[in-house]
Design a protein around this nucleic acid. Structure first.
Lengths: 152, 152
DNA sequence: CCTTGAGTTGAAGTGCCCTTCAACTTGCAG
DNA sequence: CTGCAAGTTGAAGGGCACTTCAACTCAAGG
């Protein structure tokens, strides 16, 4: 059992292609030390970062935002309690928001069958739109707390 | 109050740019009738579809997958109970999955402060990886039920 | 009528997130 | 020591989800 991982090993264990790992490194999301022959060697802790990256990404967070989050973890010193508190608090809020959005969408979809209305037309779940048109753009009932920018 | 919407009106009410609406139409996600002068007119129900599209998209579903879901709603006839049941069931499962993923991530992040370990290194939350390395690729604890393909 | 803002098209451009390729070099099993 | 899988780089390519542009046409108020 080695103490550091090659790019292939990290790729195999994280399920992320080597090319993607190199790309993440270029963007400053992960870090590698080099062997005398210039090959990357990853500490085991990088595997955790990669997991974090993929999960965050899967729920629609951009790599840039992920980088910002990971950057807030100091690497010159051991992260202290308030470092962690800051990162965690920021993410907790965004995750709560997304969880709420999803939960509402799921419940509304399910409710649409439950209520027996059988029609998007009359259901009024997806878009309460017209009654709220004066409030500005966006699907406002389901997306109550998440105004979405044009770009993903 | 008109019975159909122009592209500008739909854009304003949905918060989606006209260019994006035209794009959605090309992909078959939404539908428009044309005036004698070839301009698009949208039924109000399209607003609901757009809301649905944006919300689904926000949680990481591709337009292609959304199209498939929307396609399962017959438009030649009024969707019946089992049409709805099918669409809703499929989506409920995927939404449950994503909600679970997010909830675990959130709780783990929060727990990381709570437990006082203060270190990604020792916390073991993000990556249980090595103990499970034999099971194949992917961050398997947090992503228990969601093996993720390489492409977003 | 006429003007002006809104809409039309196809083609090209953009940003993000990678993958692929070519042309090498390294590392390790035999 | 050799052979070969695995790693290295920079540049180019590719898919998705749009946006922008140019060169028009349409719709509706004055």
């Amino acid at each position: 059992m080695h103490e550091s991982l090659t790019i292939g090993e990290l790729a195999a264990r994280s399920g992320v292609a080597p090319s993607a790992l190199r790309y993440y490194e270029r963007l400053g999301l992960i870090r590698a030390v080099r062997t005398t022959g210039n090959q990357r060697r990853y500490e085991r802790s990088e595997l955790r970062r990669v997991s974090f990256i993929r999960i965050a990404q899967q729920v629609g967070v951009s790599l840039e935002e992920i980088r910002e989050a990971l950057d807030s973890l100091p690497d010159s010193r051991t992260p202290n309690k308030s470092d962690w508190a800051r990162l965690s608090e920021r993410w907790r809020a965004r995750l709560d928001e997304k969880i709420g959005l999803l939960t509402r969408l799921r419940d509304d979809l399910t409710g649409c069958i439950g209520c027996g209305c059988l029609s998007l037309q009359r259901c009024g779940l997806y878009n309460p739109g017209d009654a709220l048109a004066a409030d500005g753009p966006g699907p406002r009932i389901l997306m109550r707390s998440a105004p979405v920018p044009a770009r993903r």
